[in-house]
């Protein structure tokens, strides 16, 4: 049987998303396909796979991403699907632990990539919100009022997310002064 679940995770909560996918696997539901806030599961044996999500530097169709994904496949890691630059990966539980990053440096690099992704999206929403806001104060008739609100809310949420990621990066950098 196939099951479709609609669920929203914010990009800086990707670890919670991973945890949720692993909890689904514990119930015997294995992720087989991914879409816009959409997860498709199939029946499997309980805890058959461990899941990880990664934001790549390039789109999955880019040559460098293809090389990387092939490398992962050679290591027994399966690429389930992608959403924009995000890739969904899994590995058989019986093949041992599944982490993508095993040192602080590479963890920081991944968080930084996500923070830039979130920050750019935040600015992309803040720019029209600010322009519309200025128009409003200049007593210009505001035709795009709902869009202004949407832009402003999305921008605030994304910029907050950027700072959440920044905090994580700073914490890791402090660890790095003492450990590898």
């Amino acid at each position: 049987m196939r099951y479709t679940v609609h669920k929203v995770f914010l990009p800086w909560n990707f670890e919670k998303e991973e945890q949720w996918l692993n909890e689904m696997s514990a119930k015997g539901l294995e992720l087989v396909s991914i879409g816009w806030c959409k997860y498709i599961f199939e029946d499997g044996s309980k805890n058959e796979y461990k899941y990880r999500i990664e934001l790549l530097e390039n789109l999955p169709s880019h040559a460098e991403s293809i090389t990387y994904i092939r490398f992962l496949e050679d290591m027994g890691i399966e690429h389930i699907g992608s959403f924009f630059r995000w890739v969904y990966l899994r590995k058989k539980t019986q093949d041992g632990d599944f982490d993508l990053y095993s040192d602080i440096d590479s963890k920081i690099k991944h968080y930084r990539r996500i923070s830039i992704f979130v920050g750019v999206l935040g600015l992309a929403n803040a720019a029209p919100a600010i322009t519309n806001g200025i128009n409003y104060f200049n007593n210009d008739f505001m035709r795009n009022y709902p869009i202004f609100i949407l832009n402003a809310v999305v921008a605030v949420v994304l910029i907050a997310g950027y700072f959440i990621l920044l905090k994580k990066i700073i914490r890791l950098k402090k660890d790095k002064q003492l450990y590898e």
């Binding site: 990387y68 992962l72 050679d74 290591m75 027994g76 982490d99 993508l100 095993s102 040192d103 991944h110």
Partner: peptide, 26 residues
């Protein structure tokens, strides 16, 4: 190859160092 490196490191270090695929690739 990649998987061989990972296995070799694990056995050299007596199972202490387990390299993750992304870190190894980087």
């Amino acid at each position: 190859h990649g998987y061989g490196i990972m296995q070799n490191i694990s056995s050299l270090s007596g199972g202490r160092v387990n390299m993750a695929a992304g870190t190894l690739y980087g």
